[in-house]
């Protein structure tokens, strides 16, 4: 889940001319590399079948230079004060009630959500995915209407093993290079998840999605709405990415 958060904060206007899939992917990567430090407030509304709705609220800090980040939960009450800190290769979970830091595995789930530690690792899309070609060797890219927008729809397949989904489909607006929808497939070809980027805000001349709907296609009825507010791209102090800061915030 939080991988999406990472990605969304990076998504912006993609500068590309010709609709070549690789260029679309590398455009995304370029954008990713241009990103600065970020600070934001994130609201997650998770809706699960027979389990009702769960609302999570957190403050998110990310330092671009070494991909460090810090998350502190601010809601609900039960989660409040818990946090996660990653600096370099070290990844800790902080529990407020025990006041302890626990070194966690990269694959550990975050806050009991579907997010995993390695969702935050910055990797280039072009390193991970390649365009899918049809029998004639043409890239699988087509024009479509998505709601009222005319979009490019293109398919990519994983080049490497260590990605979450071996196959993805992206929808990008033709008029403005903005990602609107993203579908993820398992290697058996089952649609597992769809992301809808609903509303955007302009930050430093880039459109950043601030409201995203994530639909669990596997377990129908499960969905998450991710909202981002209070985005700031000012440089963050190094003191933020420390255990002491997390502990202080938690008090």
């Amino acid at each position: 889940m939080l991988r999406i958060l990472g990605c969304i904060l990076l998504v912006g206007t993609v500068a590309f001319g010709a609709p070549k899939i690789d260029s679309l992917l590398s455009g995304y990567d370029d954008l990713y590399r241009q990103v600065s430090d970020i600070r934001a407030v994130v609201h997650l509304t998770q809706q699960k079948v027979n389990q009702g709705t769960k609302k999570l609220e957190m403050n998110y800090y990310r330092r671009d230079s070494d991909e460090s980040f810090l998350i502190i939960m601010t809601g609900p009450e039960a989660e409040k004060g818990n946090g996660y800190l990653r600096v370099g290769d070290n990844f800790w979970m902080y529990r407020k009630n025990t006041r302890t830091f626990q070194h966690i595995n990269r694959d550990e789930s975050i806050g009991g959500s579907d997010a995993q530690g390695d969702d935050f690792e910055g990797r280039l899309l072009t390193e991970m995915y390649a365009p899918v070609k049809d029998s004639a060797g043409n890239e699988m890219i087509s024009e479509e209407m998505l709601g009222k927008f005319s979009v490019w729809r293109f398919e990519v397949i994983a080049k490497v093993n260590d990605v979450d989904y071996p196959k993805k489909i992206y929808w990008i607006r033709k008029d403005k290079p903005v990602l609107l929808k993203e579908a993820s497939y398992s290697s058996s070809g089952t649609l597992m998840q769809t992301l809808y980027y609903l509303t955007f805000t302009e930050i430093k001349e880039r459109l950043v999605p601030v409201k995203t709907l994530i639909v669990d296609e596997f377990e129908k009825g499960n969905k998450t709405i991710l909202e981002i507010s209070g985005i700031s791209t000012d440089k963050l102090s190094n003191d933020i990415f420390t255990k002491a800061y997390l502990e202080n915030l938690s008090k």
Partner: peptide, 12 residues
Amino acid sequence: RFTDIRGQTQAA
């Protein structure tokens, strides 16, 4: 739905 040995999300 599960994660395979490569870490990919799988369905069967």
